[in-house]
Amino acid sequence: MKSCLLCGVGGQGTVLASRIIAAAAMGKGLFARTAETIGMAQRGGSVVSHVRVGASVPSPLIPNGGADVLLGFEPGEVLRNLRYLKEGGTVITCPETVAPVTASLGGTAYDGGAILAYLREHLEKAAVLDTAAIVAVCGSPRVVNMALLGALAESGEMGLTLSEIETAMAKKIRPRFLDMNKKALELGAKTLSEKR
């Protein structure tokens, strides 16, 4: 069984990304489960999607220390969910922080730089993806989730190849956005491979 936790802020596209991972796993005959945050909590709040694939998956939620990989749409949300990561597990995150409104109002501190530094220092397998560059090439901030999926494929942590993820993605994206998302997938994979 392989498990991936996707974490971010409501509206960033975590649900679509988790469905694509599950569909890619099903495409190669594996059983898949996901669990997502839907409803009130998704309006700009913390969201997580659990994805578990394998021959048998008893429950949709990943237990503490059960995630092979954490896919971060926002570094603070990675930090919030680190307890899910296996010892020696992989973190792939985009570096762009989103300050919670509570922090903007001045009630609390939110130091994105310190969070990234902490992740880099404490995790042997942390990859911070230059998603801004990928967004610039692809021309839309909406492709961040695909860039992360590309990097996930490249990491090999879920046992899914880039072409398996691409096939699953193509069934869930409207045709006119397909090229852009495909590009983001490839750039995500390439960026991670260059980091290694």
Binding site: V9, G10, G11, M40, A41, Q42, R43, G44, G45, S46, P63, N64, G65, G76, E77, L79, R80, L82, R83, L85, E87, P100, V101, T102, A103, G107, T108, A109, Y110, D111, A114, I115, Y118, H122
Partner: peptide, 23 residues
């Protein structure tokens, strides 16, 4: 039967809660 959660959150930077908000 549970494994203890990995302990490495103690010296982490402060993280404010992120409740849902009006868009």
């Amino acid at each position: 039967t549970a494994k203890a959660a990995p302990p490495f959150n103690e010296d982490a930077p402060f993280l404010p809660p992120r409740p849902p908000v009006l868009c």
